[in-house]
Simulated scan of single mutants.
Amino acid sequence: MTDSVKTIAIVAGEASGDLLGSLLMDAIRQAAPNVRFIGIGGAKMQGVGMDVLFPLEKLAVNGYVEVLRHYRELVGIRRNLRERFIATPPDLFIGIDAPDFNLDLELALKQHGIPTVHYVSPSIWAWRGERIHKIKQAVSRILALFPFEEPLYKQAGVPVTYVGHPLADILPENPKQMEMREQMRIMPRNAKVFALLPGSRQGEVRRLAKTYVETAKLILQQLPDAQFLVPLASRETRTIFENEVWKQEAQQLPITLLFGHAHDAMIAADGALVASGTATLEAALLKCPMVITYKMPALTYWIAKRKQYLPYVGLPNILAGKFVVPEILQDDATAENLAQALLNLVNNKQAVAELEQTFSAIHQTLRQDTAHKAAAAILPYLA
Rank of each mutant, 00 (worst) to 15 (best):
Q252K: 14
R181Y: 12
G41H: 04
G260R: 12
T237D: 11
L107H: 15
M290G: 00
A233G: 14
F101Q: 08
L286V: 03
I94N: 09
V61T: 13
R128C: 05
M266F: 13
I40D: 09
R367V: 05
R131G: 10
K210V: 00
S276G: 06
D331P: 03
K44G: 00
T215R: 04
P147K: 07
L345T: 14
A335F: 10
M290Q: 08
R201V: 10
T256D: 06
Q137A: 11
L281H: 07
P172H: 07
Q357W: 06
V11P: 02
W302F: 14
I114L: 12
K247V: 06
P166H: 05
A209E: 08
L24A: 06
A361F: 11
A298K: 14
D91W: 09
R238P: 12
K307E: 10
E354S: 12
D169T: 02
G47F: 11
G321A: 12
E150V: 03
V61G: 10
Y312N: 08
I96R: 02
S123N: 13
A284S: 09
L223D: 13
P224N: 14
I255Y: 09
P188C: 02
P289S: 03
P297F: 05
R306W: 13
A374K: 02
A15W: 01
R201S: 07
L229N: 08
L107V: 03
L379C: 02
R72E: 10
A279E: 05
V213P: 01
R79H: 14
G13S: 09
F359T: 01
R131P: 05
P326G: 03
Q350C: 01
Q340K: 12
K307V: 11
A168V: 04
A216I: 12
M296K: 00
Y381M: 04
D26I: 00
V313N: 01
L145K: 01
T256R: 15
V75N: 04
E66T: 10
V11F: 06
E83S: 13
E336Q: 13
G271F: 04
A377W: 07
L208M: 14
P33I: 03
P316K: 07
T2Q: 06
H263R: 12
D97H: 06
P326L: 05
I170E: 13
S22C: 08
L23D: 00
L379P: 09
A377G: 13
L253S: 08
Y162D: 05
Y119G: 14
D18Q: 04
D3S: 06
L299A: 14
K295Q: 11
G271S: 04
D91V: 07
L273E: 02
Q155C: 01
V139L: 10
K349S: 14
G321D: 11
A32Q: 11
P172E: 05
A376C: 01
A12Q: 01
H263S: 10
K247T: 14
T211K: 00
R82M: 15
I255M: 14
S16K: 03
F259G: 10
A376W: 03
A335I: 10
I240N: 02
A333P: 00
L218C: 10
P90H: 09
P175N: 11
P166K: 01
Q111N: 15
D332N: 13
L343Q: 13
P122H: 06
Q357R: 13
S121W: 11
T211M: 01
K6F: 05
L167N: 02
E242W: 15
G157V: 12
G95D: 10
G203Q: 14
T161N: 05
V61E: 12
T280G: 00
I86L: 09
